[in-house]
Design a protein around this nucleic acid. Sequence first.
DNA 1: TAGCTTCGCCGAACCGGTTCGATGAAGTGA
DNA 2: TCACTTCATCGAACCGGTTCGGCGAAGCTA
Lengths: 348, 348
Amino acid sequence: MNIGEIAKRAGVSRSTVSYALSGKRPVSEETRRKIQQVVDELGYRPSASARALANGRTSTIGLVFPPAGNHYTGMQLDFIGSVVEAAAAYDYDVLLSPSGVDSDRSFQRLLGERRVDGAILMEIRLEDDRVDHLAELDFPSVAIGRTAHPERGWWVGLDHTALAAACVHHLADLGHRRVAFVNRPEQLLRAGYESAHRGLDGFTKAAAERGLTVRTYCCGDDAASGQACVEQILRDDPATTALVTLNEAALGGLYRGLARAGRHVPRDFSVTGVVAGRWAETVTPQLTAADVPAEEMGRRAVDLLVERLDHSDAPPRHHLLTPPISLRASTGPAGVTPTADAGSGTTP
Amino acid sequence: MNIGEIAKRAGVSRSTVSYALSGKRPVSEETRRKIQQVVDELGYRPSASARALANGRTSTIGLVFPPAGNHYTGMQLDFIGSVVEAAAAYDYDVLLSPSGVDSDRSFQRLLGERRVDGAILMEIRLEDDRVDHLAELDFPSVAIGRTAHPERGWWVGLDHTALAAACVHHLADLGHRRVAFVNRPEQLLRAGYESAHRGLDGFTKAAAERGLTVRTYCCGDDAASGQACVEQILRDDPATTALVTLNEAALGGLYRGLARAGRHVPRDFSVTGVVAGRWAETVTPQLTAADVPAEEMGRRAVDLLVERLDHSDAPPRHHLLTPPISLRASTGPAGVTPTADAGSGTTP
DNA sequence: TAGCTTCGCCGAACCGGTTCGATGAAGTGA
DNA sequence: TCACTTCATCGAACCGGTTCGGCGAAGCTA
């Protein structure tokens, strides 16, 4: 069923069918009804490929996935969901691009083969060749995250520096003096992941400001690593009374490690960090955290991208979000300074 | 940069360029090198839209999302990830289709506008109009899940009946006599979700077989609902000593509810169910569960779909998986029968 | 009633690839 | 030397839409 068939059955030319359906030129009411009738009878829908070829737009946006890391975190899930939903509202489809092992290849597919009108990038690095590359090509894209040179770009980001600092201040206000920082995996830190770097930065500076004693750790994106990380923390400094985490996937493991070590949260030990709200609520006690507004970020990224697609001359825009810390139940006042032998509390 | 430009610069015709690149007809080594050189210089890649139009294939598969439910669960994330990855290995892109509120519209986009060569459906219902519809059209698709009439279809499913039954037997073997069942949200059960129905079925039958006293509940897909559900369970029958859950998203809440009620897992209360392994490990104690092999299922779904796309006359195939229960730490022998007043253990 | 505008529709070209049949040059055998 | 095959390449048609310029009929003005 193509447009020619419709035209034939309606007794008009192909162009008339096209205009009747698109409304880009006036068509008499009578013909339009006749055409519509045939279209409805045959359930005709114009081919996306043909349309894309003709007018040079695919009505599809690409969602480019982490170039490192082997499985996805809950936060990414929230991004994906909200991007898909927001895109649908604008009548855009979303094409997922793994850009995993073979990053360049799928990138080439998206851009080189012109499968998408624009792209949304996730898991941004401070020096991100993908962002640079797209900027050079002037290819419409919006980053979820902020590189080291964000001035002229389109992005929606989270102020990880401020958020990590807020966590530190929150803990310091509660009287904690020895605090650990649980970052994303070392591999990602080394790769230059924005959140890992800016978060670490904010943590370190704020801790120095408040005169805290700190240690920082990298931790794999899974529960087992989280548990191991806590064990390490308590071994390195048994007097630690709180931690700040950026690592959502390890959260369950962090809690487990603390429980195993006999540290009660929040009585003996406070936990906070930067985590999507939905996941902060799954742990017990619920995590006091700066809630990553993943839903809002995804939606805004799509808004920006659509704006850029509709007005190719629009000046760069961005949103930097700084959500407040949601007080839940995982932090409390630093208690009596733990006795020196408290560190031996690992279970056999 | 189109194929004509390449042809001009290489001093050959457009068709020669096409053949040189596709290899579908022999081209002299000399011309092929000349063409390749021009292609490399200009970084030319053929347009996906034009190619799709010409040969009637988009090299894209659609991943159709739940028609009900407002946010995504971790299991779905695992499916998405593995599908994208497996598809990339076959050089297919993945188009996400929310099919959320306006299910028909995005479905029409995918099929009517021929944006995809085939589709993978998630969150199958026992009577699923999407599946029926696609079967009628003879549109290549694979379901992740199994309808009430799975004989002639392509799908990869989980034997929820057997898995739920296995959970029951596991608990019964441990001596539990009063067991609750925590299902997906009522809305989904009513909509006819396969896993909810088959799981409930397997649970009920196995419990009858073992002569257990049971109660079944529906529970929202979030921690708060899980907590409320446990409270309800212990109110309805304080002597309950175990539960089986299909509801991964509520898991954290279930644990919290038990802790609040003063029930220690697994000493006082056993928890098991059907949950993706990665998520079963995030809770403490780690969940003894039938691990949903989401990664394998996604991969197999893609394998089947590609097979069907390559051989349109292939007979229907499917995989029914029955992963074993992974023994972790959330179940234990039923202890002394709880005293009658144990049910009042909710915190104020 | 001639001349002008407006309206509704048509035909053709175009988007950028693929594919089929044809063509001419080179190679082979009698 | 001629007929026949083989090989490399070309031109044209096609996929299914969109869009532009033009044209005839109807309506309006003088």
